[in-house]
Design a protein around this nucleic acid. Sequence first.
DNA 1: TGACTAAACAACTAAATAGTTGTACATTGG
DNA 2: CCAATGTACAACTATTTAGTTGTTTAGTCA
Lengths: 104, 104
Amino acid sequence: MTPEVLTLVAERFKALAEPARLRILNALRSSEMTVTELVDETGFGQANVSKHLQLLHAMHFVRRRKDGLFVYYAIADKGIFQLCDIMCGRLDAEMKARRKLLAV
Amino acid sequence: MTPEVLTLVAERFKALAEPARLRILNALRSSEMTVTELVDETGFGQANVSKHLQLLHAMHFVRRRKDGLFVYYAIADKGIFQLCDIMCGRLDAEMKARRKLLAV
DNA sequence: TGACTAAACAACTAAATAGTTGTACATTGG
DNA sequence: CCAATGTACAACTATTTAGTTGTTTAGTCA
């Protein structure tokens, strides 16, 4: 694990380190969507959503498909959700541990 | 997956989204270490390492054990490395795909 | 061609945070 | 008690980046 590799890994984690991007990914969980659909779904500005999508695409988390006026974005690798699920599991464990402490 | 939960998840990813912190975690992979040992190992400043450790501890990625003058830090949950391994797998896949493209 | 729409881009502002320097708090040994 | 050492903390600077506004590019349909 060289520092160089760790820098690349950190870069990928950073792409997932933003609530806005997680919400976009979550919205894409069920099906592909256009930018405007994502704007409506999330309530973020169009330019903002577009910028987040560029980053997610650069990191290969989403793929794009242009069709006429619209660009459809979709999850490129379902494995992303595996990462989120692990984190959620950790969150659950934390909260349970905290509740247990408070109960004592 | 409410926005609130996603915010908490993003917070945890953010803790791993820094090369410095990944290097610290990587150094702790084999055994627990004191702050100064980590400073020597990584070459970062003492205050800087300490600050990163506070954050990693707040996110329950490391645990601390005070012994006399020294504070020993260790990985709290080996599962962290599972996350890193998944990311590394993605990196590998990306690089192979890029090489394949260049070869054509 | 010209009006219209979707997405991307550029430039900017505001907020977050990495890293540094200096200092304070503990703990140990003389 | 006093000096030395390891760690944490506070304040600061510099960098990064999220989000906005305004504009540009590309495709569609009359």
